[in-house]
């Protein structure tokens, strides 16, 4: 049973109050918050790698500029988020060390390969759309410093969605081969996108709700994603690769059960690109340690 002070804390945040870094925080709250926010920071950072390779292959000057700016935003988000984590007690160096050692998690979608320029559009449009749904809900997070930076993050992510949609639009109205690149990328990304918001957990069983770190259920987020984006996908002439997908009369989307085993397998560090990407980051982190030493010594 929580002590009286903790109970009072829970009651307060349940009513919608937000707390600051300097307030007293229950240990369990701090630990859960830190883990959640750290995973968000890791995801922003690991999200850079699948897109990074395509900066170098961008087919026009404008696309190269836009993609570099987008990826730069993601690193900027990681930088902001790690500062919040630092305030909660874990230095950035340790977050990065845990990340490359495979001890920390990051979002499922960043464990997959990016095979064509079609992936660049699908990621910027749909992965970022899925992400912004979760991030908008975090604007109401009980921890005020996190909620505050989410404003900037959401604002930037909404630009990424526009960039992604523009990339997609150019291709679906281009040659049949370009259209096919988008459809093929959508076919590959649909599974991970449906897993993105996690399996439906009843609110009462999710400690993240008790602490009001999250205020939106996983299924609620997924429904919002489907409602916002399936019509747009279809409008472009693309096919969502799920024959069971349909909107019921009551407005709820039905879909094939996402592969939860795959989600679990991937986020525990066994995705198709997990090891390669962590090794890539580890290699640079280790090789350029002398630079951080030189900067700190100055």
């Amino acid at each position: 049973m929580p002590d009286a002070r903790t109970e009072e804390f829970i009651a307060r945040i349940q009513e919608g109050a937000q707390v600051e870094a300097t307030d007293w925080l229950p240990d369990d709250y701090r630990a859960k918050l830190l883990k959640f926010i750290e995973m968000h920071g890791n995801s922003e950072l690991m999200g850079v790698l699948p897109e990074r390779e395509w900066i170098l292959k961008a087919p026009t000057l404008q696309r190269k500029l836009a993609l570099t700016a987008k990826v730069q935003d993601e690193v900027g988000h990681a930088q902001l988020i790690y500062r919040v984590v630092e305030d909660l007690g874990k230095p950035r160096e340790r977050c990065l060390a845990d990340l490359v050692d495979g001890k920390a998690k990051f979002h499922n979608v960043f464990h997959y390969p990016t095979k064509t320029w079609g992936d660049v559009g699908v990621i910027a449009w749909l992965v970022d759309a899925a992400a912004i749904i979760s991030q908008k809900a975090l604007l109401k997070c009980s921890y005020a410093p996190y909620a505050r930076i989410m404003k900037k993050i959401c604002w930037e992510e909404s630009f990424h969605i526009l960039h992604g949609r523009d990339v997609i639009l150019a291709m679906v109205t281009g040659t049949p081969e370009q259209f096919e690149l988008v459809q093929e990328a959508l076919d590959r990304w649909w599974g991970p996108l449906m897993q993105f918001h996690g399996n439906p957990i009843p609110r009462e069983e999710d400690p993240m709700f008790q602490w009001r770190i999250k205020s939106q259920g996983n299924e609620e987020a997924r429904q919002q994603f489907l409602d916002g984006y399936v019509p747009q996908i279809r409008e472009l002439g693309l096919t969502v690769p799920d024959p069971k997908l349909c909107k019921r009369d009551d407005g709820v989307w039905e879909y094939s059960e996402p592969d939860w085993d795959e989600l679990k397998h991937v986020v525990t560090g066994h995705g198709p690109k997990t090891e390669e990407r962590l090794a890539f980051r580890r290699r640079f982190l280790e090789r350029e340690q002398w630079v951080r030493d030189a900067v700190l010594a100055a």
Partner: peptide, 14 residues
């Protein structure tokens, strides 16, 4: 832009 995502400091990435 090859350094995007892998610079020695996040600040340098940006």
């Amino acid at each position: 832009s090859e350094w995007t995502g892998i610079a020695p400091l996040l600040e340098e990435d940006v």
